[in-house]
Amino acid sequence: MAILEATRLAKRFGPVTAVHDVSITVAEGEVAALLGPNGAGKSTTLHMLLGLITPDAGTITLFGMELARHRVEALSRVNFAASYVDLPGPLLVQEVIDVFARFYAVRRPKERVAEMIELLELGPLRRRRLMDLSSGQRTRVQLAKALVNAPRLLVLDEPTANLDPDAGDRIRGLLSRVARDSGAAMLITSHNMREVERMCDRIHFLAEGRVVAAGSAAELAGHYGAEDLEGVFLKVARG
């Protein structure tokens, strides 16, 4: 069953066509990626799917509900993390997670906060202010926030962009476990092709605002005659 169906999305900003005729489907439990060079329209597409940007054309359906009409119900089952988004710096780690537990109307927020702190190994940091944490530690708090409502769809825009290889590997491991154990679907953008190969079932390649290819990593490599996803990326990016 598709939990996300975006059909023929289009968005222009003045003379620039950011997204043109993009259709994406994410099935329950699927980990999908949105790849493409800078300016391909990945973030614009993700932001349309999250209701941050209103499309000029096309429809977005989440869990069978049209996003434009059922924003609160649909977004209750989604969550989001991105490398370019932060959380309120003065708050303690446990306060940040608690606040978002309340935004997502979690029934027993204190218990859930404790679970997230344990899951993300944030125990020693729980009484530290966000502004005093390293980027790797902040990414873990962002993921705790993103998982606090046990989302059915997790949208991640370059989740490991600012992390060192060790921290990035830990986050990838965690996300893979989340996908496997919870059955949550994920939609990810990344410039790390190994990360995408390791985690994603299906990949949508965007170039100049259009989906130019879609399939598994192996299918795409075969289609483009490339050794791996990085080779596919280079061929797509260079036309």
């Binding site: 109307a105 979690v106 927020p109 997230m116 899951l119 998982l147 476990r177 989340v178 154990d181």
Partner: peptide
Amino acid sequence: MTALPLHPDPAPALTLPPLGFAARRS
């Protein structure tokens, strides 16, 4: 890391009905 405290179907167990008064108050 510990076992994942994730819920296969979170809507009824983990979160309040999103349009209800209790969720709005939260």
